[in-house]
């Protein structure tokens, strides 16, 4: 299609005589007008992302009624602080496990050369699973590991009662397992190209210089993979930290995660005069995400520089 379109250009254009005007100049603007074409983009982002985000901060630092400390301060005290610690712990744990298990999965899949379709199949599946989240994922795990779940029942058959052991699909351990369902595939997708970037010649060179396999990994492989591992960790952390739908559906809205807590304030079913707290919690979430994503961009810039 592209070929046909382009090869017909020369013959069939009725006003083919634009040789007098130099076409290249017609397309170029003076330097100071260059950003003009970006106005719609910046306008759109400003209106629907930046403005709401900034208003959030403005509303969060407004003085609260019936309280002498600002909402921003109150959002990191007491129960709210506990919520943040809980959410950060969960995000750190699922990110760490995701990095470890996802990288191992990528290494394992790359080791298997036949059948040929297997690698593609795993990549496609990881693409689906990494984007899976929200309501269907929560449903699947409630059916598997909920109190009446199929897997719960199978484990019970072997004599281990999950709920007696304190396991609930909506508590810390439960949410961790569910989040791994999208964290592991995401890390897999990050690590496959990273592993492929390691050339066979490098391990051969190390071996011919007398390095043991562990020495190759310790001094060559791992340092080369560090940006991908670190960037992946930060991405997985932010992925878990901002997730809402899955945790909400798993716990029927009762989870202690910050995103689920924010919902109460937006619906307004709390003590009056504390509306600002919802804004403050959201503002703190943005601050934490800002730190994480800045770290991610920094790691990626470093990695790109190294590749060139």
């Amino acid at each position: 299609m592209a070929l046909a379109g382009i090869s017909s250009l020369g013959q069939s254009d009725p006003k083919g005589g634009s040789h007098t005007r130099t076409p290249l100049q017609r397309f170029q603007l003076p330097v100071k007008f260059k950003p003009i074409g970006l106005i719609p983009f910046f306008g759109f982002v400003g209106l629907f992302l930046v403005w709401p985000a900034f208003s959030l901060f403005r509303l969060a630092i407004q003085p609260t009624k019936n309280s002498d400390i600002s909402a921003m301060r109150e959002a990191i005290t007491g129960d709210y602080l506990d919520s943040f610690i809980y959410t950060i712990k969960l995000s750190l744990l699922t990110a760490l496990l995701g990095v470890l298990l996802g990288s191992l999965l990528a290494a394992s899949v790359l080791r298997i050369e036949r059948p040929k379709w297997f690698r593609n199949f795993m990549t496609s599946f990881a693409g689906v699973a990494a984007n899976l989240g929200g309501i269907p994922l929560a449903f699947a795990f409630i059916a598997a590991l909920g109190t009446q779940g199929l897997i719960t029942k199978m484990i019970d058959y072997f004599g281990v009662n999950l709920s007696d052991a304190g396991f609930r699909i909506s508590n810390f351990a439960g949410i961790t397992i569910v989040y791994l369902y999208f964290q592991i595939p995401l890390m897999f997708l990050i690590m496959v190209p990273a592993f492929n970037g390691l050339r066979a010649a490098w391990s051969e060179a190390a071996a011919s210089l007398g390095a043991a396999p562990w020495q190759y990994w310790r001094y060559v492989g791992l340092p080369l993979l560090t940006p991908a591992l670190l960037g992946g960790f930060l991405l997985l952390f932010s992925n878990a930290f901002s997730a809402y739908a899955t945790a909400y559906a798993l716990s029927s809205g009762g989870a202690r995660l910050v995103p689920v807590q924010i919902r109460f304030f937006l619906q307004g079913n709390t003590i009056t005069g504390k509306d600002n707290l919802g804004y403050a919690l959201a503002a703190w979430m943005i601050i934490i995400m800002l730190i994480t994503m800045t770290g991610y961009l920094f790691v990626r810039r470093r990695a790109e520089k190294w590749q060139q």
Partner: peptide
């Protein structure tokens, strides 16, 4: 990515 959906929607309704 910096503004999680939950924070965005809070800002939007604000």
């Amino acid at each position: 990515y910096v503004v999680p959906p939950i924070a965005l929607v809070v800002g939007v309704s604000g």
